[in-house]
């Protein structure tokens, strides 16, 4: 199992570096202009308070954009970080196993004394490590930059919001992984996982103003991701269970499907 994890990480070493650099720059550039916004916070806040409710829902569900928590929520945690890490998670979930199968290199691995369950677990672990590394770089960038530009938010709450974001995107990656494990082509697994992720974001945003979307929004992971509440320390942590259930459930279904199916 160690060998598969080690060599998968070795094969993806440049991916890890480039994703880390990208996350660093995106977070840094988003946060570095906070002092300019802060100086004009009162005027900007007034103009944003007149935004339609639907628009507000799409940018974080709060009209507080220029307080330290409001800024971090709208600029980093509500959209940018889930998008960045979500793309990475879905990309990993849909390729870690599927690329081996598509390129037929999976036969060289399964011709060795390694069970399909172990192969699946090794690939999932490698994905977890890659996603975790980029998340950690994102967290460190957020923490350091927030100190540099003097965003006064509890460091613990920033860590917790990042963990929640990690678990959210992990569930997207797990869904993509599940569909490739069932033998679906990469394209459809990316499509399904993106629909759950991006669709969840849209439905959850619209559910604030469209009543009949309230129930379906509860079936999607994004509904349970409330970074502003985490940053304020008012989050109901049982919500995290939803991400864990999706991730573990996808993992179990992936194993059940992969253990006895034909390798193409």
């Amino acid at each position: 199992m160690k060998a598969v994890i080690k060599w998968t990480l070795w094969q993806r070493r440049f991916n890890i570096v480039w994703w880390s650099i990208a996350s660093f720059f995106l977070i840094f550039i988003n946060m570095i202009f906070y002092p300019s916004f802060k100086d004009q916070a009162v005027q900007l806040q007034k103009s944003f308070e007149n935004l339609p409710q639907t628009t507000v829902q799409f940018i974080g569900g709060s009209t507080d954009f220029f307080s330290p928590i409001g800024f971090l929520n709208s600029q980093i945690f509500f959209f940018m970080l889930p998008l960045l890490l979500g793309v990475l998670a879905i990309g990993l979930g849909s390729s870690l196993l599927a690329r081996e199968e598509q390129n037929k290199t999976i036969e060289s691995l399964l011709a060795r004394p390694i069970s399909r369950a172990r192969l699946l677990l090794s690939k999932a672990t490698a994905g977890f490590v890659i996603l975790g590394t980029v998340t950690l770089i994102s967290l460190i960038t957020t923490l350091v930059t927030s100190r540099v530009v003097n965003i006064q938010v509890s460091m613990v709450n920033i860590v917790l919001a990042t963990i929640a974001c990690f678990l959210l995107v992990l569930s997207f990656g797990a869904i993509a992984f599940l569909f490739t494990a069932t033998g679906r082509v990469r394209g459809s697994s990316i499509g399904i996982a993106t629909a759950v992720g991006l669709g969840g974001y849209i439905i959850n945003s619209l559910a604030g103003t469209v009543n009949w979307l309230k129930v379906p929004s509860k079936l999607l992971p994004f509904h349970y991701y409330q970074p502003e509440a985490i940053l304020r320390g008012t989050y109901e942590w049982s919500n995290i269970l939803f991400f864990l259930v999706i991730t573990l459930g996808s993992g179990i279904l992936a194993w059940l499907s992969f253990r006895r199916r034909d390798i193409r």
């Binding site: 598969v4 037929k104 290199t105 036969e107 060289s108 060795r112 004394p113």
Partner: peptide
Amino acid sequence: KQSVGYLAGDFSVYPKMNGKQYLQYLNEL
């Protein structure tokens, strides 16, 4: 598979690995 050696008809490899790395990987497995 402890005791079986296998060669596929359309033997596929990781194009960026060299032979030493590839065989080391399989040897570890």
